[in-house]
Amino acid sequence: MTEQAGEPAESATGGQWPLWEVFVRSRRGLSHSHAGSLHAPDAQMALRNARDLYTRRAEGVSIWVVPSAAVTASSPDEKDPFFEPAGDKAYRHPTFYEIPEGVKHL
């Protein structure tokens, strides 16, 4: 699943517009999050279409658009070897450690 980043794999030919993923920052201080996708012939139009579609109820202050084909995904089925090994490392989490009662600011 390693697509070539950059140029959309399906180029805009024959009237077929490529797919873009849209990320919206809903307000300052928050990160952009995935809102959905849309079709557009190029990045400029994708940005404008995203503005009209995904922020028409004032849902955003900033938008990113990314060609869907440029997204490299972790693994086809999104499980097992990639993520399971992290599951048994409870010592990465603060709740793993026992601290005597009364100790503050820790």
Binding site: A5, G6, F23, A43, A46, L47, R48, R51, T55, R56, R57, A58, E59, G60, V61, S62, I63, W64, V65, V66, A70, V71, T72
Partner: peptide, 18 residues
């Protein structure tokens, strides 16, 4: 990812209410 990172051009939608 080599995103087309740009902030929205034109007016912010929050200004479109009236």
């Amino acid at each position: 990812m080599t995103a087309t990172e740009q902030t929205t051009t034109g007016p912010g939608t929050s200004e479109r209410t009236a």
